[in-house]
Design a protein around this nucleic acid. Structure first.
Lengths: 189, 189, 189, 189
DNA sequence: ACATAAGCGAGACGGTACGTCTCGTCTTCTG
DNA sequence: CAGAAGACGAGACGTACCGTCTCGCTTATGT
């Protein structure tokens, strides 16, 4: 068979994603419209719909490309330090300029089951999946006490998100360290 | 001076809130419309807008009135059992039909700082405030090991919310028990 | 038997009519609302509805009281002069400040059969009824040539209204005189 | 350059105008709503507003397209017969089902000077312009007595409109003949 | 004199329609 | 044939008024 006709212009994907991120930051998720994204990107609406089937799908991709994937998971061999580093990166994002967007998106995650599902599969899960085996290894090495791996692999992120999004308690700089100390104590016995 | 004009009919508030909760459960937040709520309540749209300035405000009130305030905090003297009971109630709500609605509200909380504050003070915080002194007492008694009270008083709710709203992992029946066992272990040394 | 209860306050009628005329001039018929009239008059809506059953009825009364009844029909003995005087008064109103209102009302007359009927009965007809016998007398005296009395008793007003409201041709000062000369010529044979 | 984007569908204009005329006849001007027109035409409201900026503008166009332009001006050589024929056509329209609609438009004309101008130029004036030179010719030929051409070229229409729209007097079948006889008498001297 | 009953300002009520906005699809022309 | 432009059916948004209905007064009258 083979492709026929004009190939899709990759600059267009770029322009759409950038417009989406910009509007997400400026207007928030609720007030972002496909119409607005298309206009901002200098693109027809149909061109957007040709690539993403819904506002949700577009936003998920925009976030994934520009914000989530920017978190780096270090591997220093020191499990506790690695966890603290990851939590610090998340904390910075929840607190900083990108945090506004993050809030908007997570806020939407929460309302929108479909978005939550997709997002969780594509972005969150990857981080969790990477940390879990290291946690198990750390427990075996005796770096941290044994425990419920499933609970512990999420607890840090859970506490940060809960503070940022629900309880409204402050996100202090020392929070990652406190979390690590409380939930992954050095095995000193 | 005193009030003038016809007073607002409290039955109308009731009818609107009930219609909102019903539609929230049946249709979800996104597909709920003020138009639909008004029709369901047998009420004019203006009557809704006279009381709530937006869909968001209405839904938050509906939740607060009908769902959140129904959580009971037991006081059996057994701290670990009390925590598990509270977490179980929250879990049931997050999982049940009401959970859909809960998602909607928490999603809004995230965007609206003022709302988050009010909400957190009136419903979430009350639970936290009540549990914290008991946690401290339990630590002193040696029922649970000492630790970071601020982190520990939120960790259960944080984990439940994170699973329900963000990570999408299942809310199993044994989750409250696992949380208590992991984070508030019986002091067996 | 007799009336019981508080009697209606005549100042209220005044206030409502004045408010109605003012708003008619400022906003026109279409944009005049009972709500606005009541507010302007410092009166409850029910008080307006107690006196007039519709916007139409109120406006008809307002016009009748304040605008139409101000046309004077002179009786000098000179039929042609009398006609010219009446036409001049109408022309001035159609052209002047009150003309705006007049346009609005006649515009409404035209759309609103009920209003047209009432209005025609109450205000227009009276002028016509008064002029017709004089026209007949003038014909008998030979002041004007004989002709179709029914047509002739309306033709002047008809031409003025047609120019003002439909054809848009100018309402010149000499129009009443031209009308009289053309349709009621001095019997010079 | 040329037009871009999807062109407007002329069938849609047709459907909207037809729906407007139908509803105008069935419900009258006051009870006609854009919402109703759109529904009847099987069209979104925005599609109506894309073409006409108000109910008024739509109705005027509907009338112009469907009713006004349908008047034929005959040319038999007999001036008096031609005038009577035109007046009869107008009378039929003012009296028939279309007359309701006619009232609606003329009512709007009256308020909207710009509209009145356009309307008068495009539809009314064309008739007047065509009849005036014939009137002058007829006067020269001695078919009708000399007189004020400007007044006489409008007087028939003026009388019909006045009866139909303002005074409410009946529009009898013999009215055109009576008008011709009174205002354009056969020159028998 | 004082209950009775209507008038009154205020404004809530169930509705209808407004004119605007965005959705996701569709059609046309241009490159 | 992709892409931009934008028309399209659909339907919710929040506003403005409609005409009716309470409220808590205020004002006469008629017993």
């Amino acid at each position: 068979m083979g492709r026929v006709g004009r190939p899709r212009d990759p600059h267009v994907d770029e322009a759409i994603l950038s417009a989406a991120v910009d509007l997400l930051i400026e207007e928030g998720f609720a007030r972002l419209s496909i119409e607005g994204v298309a206009a901002r990107a200098g693109v027809g609406k149909a061109t957007v719909y040709r690539r993403w089937e819904s506002k949700t799908a577009l936003v998920v991709d925009a976030i994934k490309e520009r914000l989530v994937s920017s978190i780096e998971i270090p591997e220093t061999g020191d499990f506790r330090a690695d966890v603290e580093a990851v939590l610090t990166q998340i904390l910075v994002r929840l607190r900083g300029m990108e945090g506004q967007v993050w809030r908007a998106v997570v806020g939407e995650l929460v309302k929108n089951e479909e978005l939550a599902h997709v997002f969780s599969q594509r972005s969150m899960a990857s981080g969790r999946a990477e940390m879990r085996p290291r946690l198990e290894a750390a427990m075996e090495r005796g770096d941290v006490p044994p425990g419920d791996v499933e609970l512990l692999s999420d607890v840090g992120v859970a506490v940060l998100h809960h503070r940022a999004l629900i309880s409204g308690e402050p996100l202090d700089d020392d929070l990652p360290a406190r979390i690590v100390n409380q939930f992954f104590p050095r095995e000193t016995r």
